[in-house]
């Protein structure tokens, strides 16, 4: 089953084109990493495929429906980049946040046994049941990201979209967070994530889409490493963050065309 289908999608903020002519499909059960330089439109692409923005041109479909008209909120879970800011100040417990996962299914009525079971199951699943009554703001970055994943699991959603979820995490929490995602993906959850660390994402995701306004690569992660898409997308003399081989400059054989884009 095709979860996401983008065909020739273009989007701009005002006069600034951010996404131009991108077509790609995401099949159920995929683990897709979106990579590209800063300002390459990764987050915007994520918002387009979730139906949070409407493309200026082309079409975005979610589970076969136009993405912006798609109404089954419980099938989609989204962890935005800025979410942790709010989490720090607001007095709210882990359980209260995970319960939000059930809200799309049950926005007004009483919580049923099934709702409560889903919340408890999700807390167990990501190993934070013992933190259920702690304030979210008092947790570490890694624990907090698990809370948001638990919220998605409580929703029993089919698609989990994350925007740079590990950006504030230390290496150890990041690894265990990716272990968790891999495990969930093995059980059939479709995952799309934006990641700045190319080494990590090529090691962990099954598919990679590399973009810089246009799509430079879309395919299996093994093939991505061997392609020159990375250098093309980043352009010459751009520093690429890749923890697996320390920091290094992207190979500088990018065309002048791609330099203009970056």
């Amino acid at each position: 089953m095709t979860v996401v289908s983008l065909s020739d999608v273009a989007f701009s903020y005002g006069d600034v084109p951010v996404i131009d002519g991108i077509s790609l499909d995401i099949e159920a059960g995929e683990f897709l990493g979106l990579v590209g330089p800063n300002g390459s439109g990764k987050s915007t692409l994520l918002r387009l495929l979730l139906g949070l923005e409407r493309p200026d041109r082309g079409e975005a479909h979610l589970f076969g429906e136009p993405a912006h008209e798609f109404g089954d909120g419980e099938r989609i879970a989204y962890v935005a980049q800025d979410v942790t800011d709010a989490a720090r100040d607001m007095p709210i417990t882990v359980r209260e946040v995970v319960r939000m996962g059930r809200y799309p299914r049950n926005l007004f009525g009483r919580f049923s046994d099934a709702d409560r079971a889903a919340v408890d199951g999700a807390l167990d699943r990501v190993d934070i049941a013992d933190l259920a009554d702690r304030r979210v703001g008092a947790l570490s970055g890694g624990q907090r990201q698990r809370v948001f994943v638990a919220r998605a699991l409580a929703a029993e959603s089919d698609l989990l979209a994350l925007d740079e979820p590990t950006v504030a995490l230390d290496a150890e929490s990041r690894d265990s967070f990716y272990d968790l995602l891999a495990d969930l993906n093995d059980r059939g959850l479709t995952i799309v994530l934006v990641e700045h660390d190319i080494g990590v994402v090529t090691a962990r995701a099954s598919r990679i889409a590399c973009l810089n306004r246009e799509l430079y690569f879309h395919g299996d992660s093994e093939d991505f490493a061997e392609s020159d898409a990375l250098a093309a997308a980043y352009g010459a003399n751009q520093r690429v963050l890749d923890h697996s081989h320390d920091h290094h400059d992207a190979e500088a054989h990018a065309s002048s065309d791609s330099e203009a884009k970056s």
Partner: peptide, 22 residues
Amino acid sequence: AVAYRPLVFVTFDETAARASRV
């Protein structure tokens, strides 16, 4: 009391609420 859940969801995480079609 009636709109408590949507209010909390939007207060805590407006973008996720929008993605969940609230």
